[in-house]
Design a protein around this nucleic acid. Structure first.
Length: 222
DNA sequence: ACCCAGGGTCATA
DNA sequence: TATGACCATGGG
């Protein structure tokens, strides 16, 4: 029996995850004030950090009416750091938030900022200190509605267990495998990444195997 | 007490 | 180019 192709694994996994968890409707936001900027803030705050801790920081910013490019640009860096303390790395992240705000302030609005080809936007985002490949793609996919597939540590963990790749595969290599296997559809990309995170949070944090994981039967036995 | 989280940058060899 | 150190809180 021949082993399944990458495309088959990726499609089958999506079906099973969707069946198990349903629609995720990412990216989660608190309010409707500045949802796009709030998403961008969230992608920075959640870097290598549990979402719950990042979310507390966002709630803090919301209650101080700070989900605003001009205000983040102007706020005292130490005060900002104190407000986002729960997200960890608060000095770095305060600096990164201010850098992003300064960059976005060069445009009339976030909408205008995003109103360009994805490739051009991606390069520009990557040129900003504090934004790497995953953060850039998260911003593009969830704030910019661009079909950029987000690869994270969970994606590598899950799909290396499924025999699709090595655990330390290069970001863009794995991203290409997904893009080549799926219809280039923003909503599909959004849902898939969200489903991967949801599944990993529930079942794939602990080491060896994931009982009750919807992908358990597809994992390679070892 | 240890391990990990919805990463990224920078210095060194 | 490829590791390693560093950033830091909070939950299991």
């Amino acid at each position: 029996m021949k082993s399944p192709s990458s495309k088959e694994i990726i499609k089958k996994s999506y079906d099973r995850l969707y069946k198990a968890f349903g629609r995720q409707r990412w990216w989660p936001t608190q309010g409707i004030e500045n949802p796009l900027f709030e998403i961008i803030i969230g992608t920075i705050l959640t870097q290598n950090t549990a979402w719950q801790n990042a979310e507390k920081a966002i709630i803090n910013l919301c209650s101080n009416n700070l989900i605003d490019i001009g205000k983040i640009k102007k706020i005292n860096r130490k005060r900002l750091a104190n407000l986002i303390r729960s997200a960890g790395y608060y000095n770095q992240k305060a600096e990164r938030l201010k850098i992003v705000a300064q960059h976005l302030a060069k445009y009339p609005s976030i909408k205008v900022f995003f109103d360009r080809p994805a490739e051009e936007l991606r390069e520009e985002l990557l040129s900003i200190k504090g934004i790497g490949p995953e953060t850039a793609d998260s911003i593009l996919l969830y704030a910019g509605n661009k079909p950029c597939f987000v690869v994270d540590a969970y994606t590598k963990r899950i799909f290396s267990r499924l025999g699709l790749c090595e655990q330390d595969i290069d970001y863009h290599e794995l991203q290409k495998i997904f893009i080549d296997s799926l219809k280039k559809d923003v909503r599909l990309f959004q849902e898939y990444h969200a489903l991967i995170v949801e599944c990993a949070k529930l079942f794939c944090r602990k080491k060896p195997v994931c009982k009750k994981c919807p992908l358990e039967k597809m994992c390679r036995k070892k």
